[in-house]
Amino acid sequence: MDPITFLTQILAPALWKGLIVTVALVVLTAPFGLLLGTGLALGRQYGGRALSTACSGYIVFFKGCPLLLLLFILYFGLPSLGLTLPAFTAAVIGFILCNAAYNSEYIQGAVASIKDGQMTAAQALGMTRAQAIKSIILPQAMRRAIPGLSNEFIYLIKYSSLAYMITVVELTGAAKIAATRYFMFNESFFAVGIVYLALVTLTTYAVGRLEQRVAIPGMGVKT
């Protein structure tokens, strides 16, 4: 088969399907990863000793556990304990657990960087600690965490390819199947590389726009 026919007739439709799965993995993971990461960061920063230790333990565990191993445990290991997850679900859960651990580090760093006076002033006005965290601390900290969180989001796009190892045919998996079947490795992986590059470039652009949009005038955030 000539390369042009392969790319247009075989690879492109396969990558399109794979892209949809990759985007679904990322879109389902990111919000929950952010939410859980925020909870872990706040638990560590403001929780009592027990909660703070539990959050730290979670983070150490999931940062230390190779993601592939985690996916294997969720997909291949849990059925022996009587819990069988569909491959896609196992992948999303694994990504959320891992993504949240890294997100929490960026968020906690950002929360810790907010001057104590902000919390003090909020409490002096009669806000409870929870109100102050929600209305004063997090809106500022999240702005500061955007660069770190966006890096993590880009990693997520790329490590979503590990889902293929537990049979989820996403972008890399689709390319691998087409490459193997038609013995067109260079064409397949070069093409899929371009798709990832496009996804990451798009994300970088979107994050830049977001940073500009939420920038606080006079605070020296580059515009």
Binding site: G117, Q118, A121, A124, I136, P139, Q140, I216, M219
Partner: peptide, 13 residues
């Protein structure tokens, strides 16, 4: 009981 601080502590955002 209101409070005014030396460093203002206005909410930056």
């Amino acid at each position: 009981i209101g409070m005014v601080f030396q460093n203002f502590n206005l909410f930056d955002h």
